[in-house]
Design a binder for these strands. Structure first.
Lengths: 206, 206
DNA sequence: AACTCTTTCGACTTCAAAGTCAAGTTTCTT
DNA sequence: AAGAAACTTGACTTTGAAGTCGAAAGAGTT
């Protein structure tokens, strides 16, 4: 926080970085509260207090409550997009790819306080449009893998949409009961979820 | 409340029945809106208008918005309790019982506009306590069946809680994407969900 | 047709929470 | 140490939706 003022190249003390870090902290604190209580049941004052700040201080870092919610959503989708890309290159059957991806998803959601929030109704206009678009993108990517798996025989033939919605539901529900530091670790849940997902859809061809 | 005073039995025109029916209509209309938009994103005025009423007319049938939400929850849990009881008497393995129950659950949620709402944060005090209790009751009933299934070998041994949360998540998520009258009927979804749930957890003993 | 209970309405009040502001304090730079 | 930028504050305004009320229109009964 304090940098030496002497002659050489004093570590730049990047103010932007400081600001960005605090802004991130605000969004994560809010996200954690939204996850547990829901967007509308969490006031800006609560968020502020959880960080030891006053409400107005929050508005130094964010423009509005809606913007916080938007960023909570986008952060998760960004992380998921990365996982999707990572899996794209993989060799293996559709089922294998899906296992890898799903495991990453569970780990994401049980680490770092990232949460798939259901609250999209709290967003308006472009915020809403963008979030729905991003969610659709993830969904389509997963569905594509499932369809590929059905083609190569690693996944049992069925309606792809229903198949996907079934195990994606488990991810969305996860946020409402998972407690970091509870009896079950994210790792354990990831293992169990992947196993159950896999067994649920595995096809005839091994 | 009022019984005909004349000699014969003129059509009773039961006012209580009328009232109860309209009250039910209010709760269902509200439930449908809550399901799609969320509790806090649905105003009383909207609910009223969807029924062709004014806001004040709503308050003739319900005491508060919170009471509506409470009743939406309770109606689902009542219906689920009935399904649980129906399954209790059944013969068969744990897995078979669970299949029957799960199928009933999906059908419930795709019929009659009943919806498992996630919004519990909108409730306070006794309302909240009761809803959480009812939800816990259902969860425990399902978990008990799963544990029995693990004992009789029809369900693969694993952490019962995680096993249950996985497929119950699909039910909760269902509400957010299912559209009555859409491409997929409730029947079809029920078949697909049961199949995927079953395959996901089936044990060694057939 | 008069009477009464049920049902509805428009207009009002209340309330909680989002968002704003002017002025103060702290932290870094020179 | 002075000046500027970053940061924080308590008190204020705004907003949107919940909930209330007195009057009136409708329906069934005699």
């Amino acid at each position: 926080m304090k940098t030496p003022a002497s002659k050489s190249t004093p570590p730049p003390f990047d103010r932007e970085r400081q600001y960005a870090a605090k802004r991130r902290a605000v969004i994560f604190a809010a996200g954690a509260a939204f996850r547990k209580q829901g967007y509308h049941n969490t006031s800006m004052v609560e968020i502020a207090r959880s960080l030891g700040l006053s409400k107005a201080a929050l508005y130094y870092y964010v423009k509005s409550k809606e913007e916080i919610l938007y960023n909570c959503h986008i952060m998760v989708y960004d992380a998921m997009d990365i996982s999707v890309k990572a899996v794209r290159g993989n060799k293996g059957t559709g089922l294998e790819k899906l296992e890898n991806l799903y495991e990453e998803f569970v780990k994401l959601l049980t680490r770092d306080g990232l949460a798939l929030l259901a609250d999209i109704g709290g967003l308006k206009g472009d915020f809403k449009k963008t979030v729905l678009m991003r969610r659709g993108k993830i969904e389509r990517a997963v569905t594509r893998i499932v369809i590929a798996g059905m083609k190569d025989g690693s996944i049992a033939k069925a309606d792809p949409k229903v198949t996907v919605f079934f195990f994606m539901g488990a991810l969305n529900w996860l946020n409402l009961w998972f407690e970091p530091g509870g009896r079950l670790s994210g790792e354990e849940i990831a293992q169990a979820f992947v196993a159950q997902m896999r067994a649920g859809i595995a096809g005839p061809k091994p």
